[in-house]
Design a protein around this nucleic acid. Structure first.
Lengths: 131, 131
DNA sequence: GTGATTGCAAATGTTTTGCAGGTTG
DNA sequence: CAACCTGCAAAACATTTGCAATCAC
């Protein structure tokens, strides 16, 4: 069992994700980290994102079509992706526990987690559409 | 606008997906197609899966962690993935339209599609756990 | 015959991994 | 100093694409 040791890089990656609400990809994290650690490698970014995700300190949003995205917000919540511009937005939805409970009613296994994604067109793209 | 032409390969791929309920990956489809068309290429499988998905004749289940999976069942329904064995099972859940409607209540864009995934342990893995 | 489809192979994009050196506790 | 972590580069995957030959209409 690997004991965890402090790393500036990991700390910065987590802090960075906390400030963002747009669910950046590993590459975006990497680009932003470079301004603090010019020599940081993409491998380190991936390793830390994966580690933080395993620890439950961040959430990995498995493929919305392209590269995986990462979310500093860990409470269960839903996501919306605009099929026009590709942006990913948090949705304030009803209690996820409730959805999970109802989904498991006709199922013989155990449901412990849930990820709901909605697709459509975001507010900004709808405005552009009108022009 | 490309006019669609018949292809045996595409037909077989669709038929194959209709017979399966385990949401195979492109590679699994490819392996199975090889018994009918020994020279079929993986590229052809990907091209046809993508085409069928665009036509709405099959559903692409974007990354459950590894490779994308494909589903011959197109009515809206939820999926469960076992974090132990990786199997993906259909879930009979409440009306998806209803979930979409409620998710959009505090949202200014338009929601047109939804994909809900549940995670946990499947019945088979629970039995093995007990031993 | 025209244009869509195919097999093949090479290219692309994303993520993981081996290794030698540096850092943490 | 032992174990973890890093940067770098190569490898591993999944998927897409260019091309010349083939097939459907």
């Amino acid at each position: 069992m690997a004991a965890l040791k402090y790393s500036r890089q990991r700390e910065s990656i987590k802090e960075f994700l906390m400030t963002r609400t747009d669910h950046p990809t590993a590459d975006t994290v990497y680009e932003n980290m470079k301004s603090i650690y010019p020599n940081i490698s993409l491998g380190t970014v991936y390793r830390n994102l994966s580690l933080l995700s395993d620890l439950g300190e961040i959430k990995k949003l498995a493929s919305f079509g392209g590269a995986d995205r990462f979310d500093g917000r860990v409470e269960p919540h839903c996501h919306f992706m605009c099929t026009e511009c590709g942006c990913v937005i948090d949705l304030e939805t009803e209690d996820m526990q409730d959805i999970m409970k109802r989904a498991g009613e006709h199922f013989n296994g155990i449901i412990t987690d849930c990820s709901a994604r909605f697709f459509g067109m975001c507010e900004d793209c709808m405005k552009k559409e009108k022009n």
